[in-house]
């Protein structure tokens, strides 16, 4: 028994995995429709954007900060890129994603400047940059939605890509979105960064203790800029990917999404005090959140309950983490 407890303590991901399994099995028992490939595929597809954004938040939280500006950055990158694609008449995928990522990166660096040089609490900084960026997009760039008929064709095709498709029991075809692969790739890159590079370990070290990190010889400024810059870049990328997946570019999209994403990351075992959390945990946390919120309908619960459920998940996950960390200190 203590062996299991110790394993859970050393690998918090196991806990999240257990929660996910229990959730999936329970929902599957209540309504077997859950197990249909179309449902499973759509859940995986739905977890892509939340998951990628979760990786951005994970980076920030590992360093001991928090970020609520990323949905605004994602939308800004997406809307500006799509507008540019239409205006300048290019629709190749790579330059488009490079542009969106670059916009996100620049915005993220603005956060870094405020957090590092002006020593302001990250929550308040990112609240400010998020609002300002959204105000800029809606107030200056435009408020109109770019619909499927105007969206760059190649972008739509990219978003439509499927890895494979299967025939379901009722004869209908259903496919797994190729975007899952993009998500997996980014997750792998972030995992490699965090686990196998010195700068990645520097993020953990910074979250573990800024003064100690400085004494050991980590460059705190470089690490802070990397964290917020990369978080912004990932958000920018995810923004355009989101546009490609839903075939529209809506500058009012993703309002309030930060709460879902933070919920997913916290559920994945990351601590807001920094230094604790992993890519695997975040992926599992994101999946769990998506499975729960997207299964309300097949559980026969009205979707208006979604906010309440997400809120309860945040509260439960943070209370559990606080309880865990208190035991650790004692």
């Amino acid at each position: 028994m203590s062996g299991i407890a110790a394993a859970f303590r050393r690998h918090p991901e196991l806990m999240v995995a257990a929660i996910l399994v229990v959730t999936v099995v329970t929902i599957g028992l209540v309504n077997p429709v859950f197990w249909q490939p179309s449902n499973l595929f759509s859940l995986l597809r739905a977890s892509v954007i939340t998951g990628i954004l979760g990786l951005a938040v994970l980076l920030v939280m590992l360093s001991g900060g928090i970020d609520v500006s990323f949905p605004a950055f994602a939308i800004a990158a997406m809307y500006l890129t799509v507008k540019a694609m239409i205006a300048w008449g290019f629709d190749s995928i790579l330059p488009a994603f490079a542009m969106a990522t670059g916009i996100g990166l620049l915005l993220g660096l603005v956060n870094a400047v405020f957090v590092h040089y002006l020593r302001m609490i990250p929550l308040i900084v990112t609240l400010g940059t998020g609002t300002a960026v959204r105000g800029f997009i809606l107030g200056i760039v435009g408020t109109s939605q770019i619909n499927i008929d105007q969206m760059p064709q190649r972008l739509i095709e990219f978003g439509r890509g499927q890895l494979f498709s299967v025939t379901q029991a009722d004869g209908s075809q259903t496919g797994l979105s190729a975007m899952v692969l993009v998500y997996a790739l980014i997750a792998l890159l972030v995992h490699l960064l965090l686990r196998y590079t010195m700068v990645g370990r520097g993020i953990y070290a910074l979250g573990g203790g800024e003064e100690a990190a400085r004494r050991v010889g980590f460059n705190i400024r470089q690490t802070t800029f990397l964290v917020y810059g990369l978080a912004g870049a990932i958000a920018g990328f995810a923004g355009l990917l989101h546009g490609a997946m839903i075939w529209t570019a809506n500058p009012r999209d993703m309002v309030g999404l930060e709460l879902d994403v933070i919920a997913a990351v916290v559920l994945g075992g990351a601590s807001i005090f920094g230094g604790r959390g992993s890519v695997i945990g975040t992926i599992l946390g994101g999946l769990t959140l998506i499975v729960i919120t997207n299964s309300l309908i097949i559980l026969g619960i009205d979707t208006t309950w979604q906010r309440v459920v997400v809120g309860l998940i945040v509260i439960t996950a943070t209370a559990a983490t606080a309880w865990r960390d208190r035991k650790r200190i004692a």
Binding site: Y204, A205, G207, E211, A212, G274, G275, R276
Partner: peptide
């Protein structure tokens, strides 16, 4: 005195 270690690592 505080050892400057990383408790999380």
């Amino acid at each position: 005195q505080d050892f400057s270690l990383f408790g999380n690592l």
